[in-house]
């Protein structure tokens, strides 16, 4: 039976209106509601289902970030994960934390914990990088199935149905492997109140990047963060002729 590692990220809640800091260094995160990255919820759900189908023996959740990341890990534990590892990264280091660092951390933990399968969300809804799964697979030199919309365990490994442009692709991989979850992989369960309470008793280990021997020096510098362009206001035309004239002007007809 396989041991599964899932990566979860604490991000600004999907329903929150994002505000850019006036100095363009990032977005406002203080006093803003945070929750688990929706794609990571899907990853957690898939891992927990593997366990429920007796295809996985243990599911471990990992999160890199400040102390509050433990809340996200609690949610994962409440969804059915067995134990959690919190890799503490705080302050300036957290601000400049990039997928390459997370991938190195996940790769190191995968080896330490002797896991057979790593599942992560395909991307986080805050930076939309979509790199962690691919980089983790590269560091470990394991096969990867990114953008999975279906995951099946076979005798020798996995059959992953991937969402690609204009269709689906089916790949067969051996284990160990890295998989990233796409939106249609499953419907994640809701972490209920009793389960959140029970999750408080589950083990949560705290480590630092230094313990794992991962260097967090940034490789990329964020130059500026800006609001997307505001949509231009429309106008009401008095009659059909003006409308046609305007459409012609815009080159639409």
């Amino acid at each position: 039976m396989a041991r599964v590692l899932v990566g979860v990220k604490r991000v600004i809640d999907y329903a929150v209106k994002i505000r850019v800091k006036p100095d363009k260094s990032g977005v406002v995160t203080d006093g803003v509601k945070h929750s688990m990255n929706p794609f990571d919820e899907i990853a957690v759900e898939e891992a927990v289902r593997l366990k429920e189908k007796k295809l996985a023996s243990e599911v471990i959740a990992v999160s890199c970030g400040p102390t509050q990341s433990q809340e996200t890990l609690r949610t994962a534990l409440a969804m059915g994960v067995d134990r959690a590892i919190h890799v503490e990264v705080a302050g300036a280091e957290y601000e400049s934390l990039q997928p390459i660092h997370v991938a190195k951390i996940l790769a190191k933990l995968s080896q330490d914990e002797k896991v057979d399968l790593v599942i992560v969300g395909k991307q986080a809804i805050d930076d939309d990088s979509n790199q962690t799964a691919q980089m983790t697979a590269a560091f470990l030199d394991w096969p990867q199935g990114a953008f999975a919309s279906k995951l099946e365990k076979t005798d020798s490994g996995l059959t992953v149905t991937r969402e690609i442009d204009g269709g689906l692709e089916v790949v067969k991989t051996k284990l160990p492997a890295v998989v990233s979850a796409d939106l249609r992989l499953n419907e994640p369960r809701y972490a209920t109140l009793p389960n959140i309470m029970k999750a408080k008793k589950k083990p949560l280990k705290k480590v630092t990047a230094k313990d794992l021997g991962v260097d967090l020096t940034p490789r990329i510098k964020v130059v500026s963060v800006e609001d997307p362009p505001v949509r231009q206001a429309g106008s009401i035309v008095p009659d059909v002729d003006t409308l046609i004239a305007k459409l012609k002007e815009g080159g639409h007809i």
């Binding site: 999907y14 329903a15 929706p38 794609f39 809804i125 939106l183 419907e187 994640p188 809701y190």
Partner: peptide, 15 residues
Amino acid sequence: LYKLKKYRAMKRRYY
């Protein structure tokens, strides 16, 4: 309701 709302938001944003 929550599940559907989140799924729809993700679908609208990314798909």
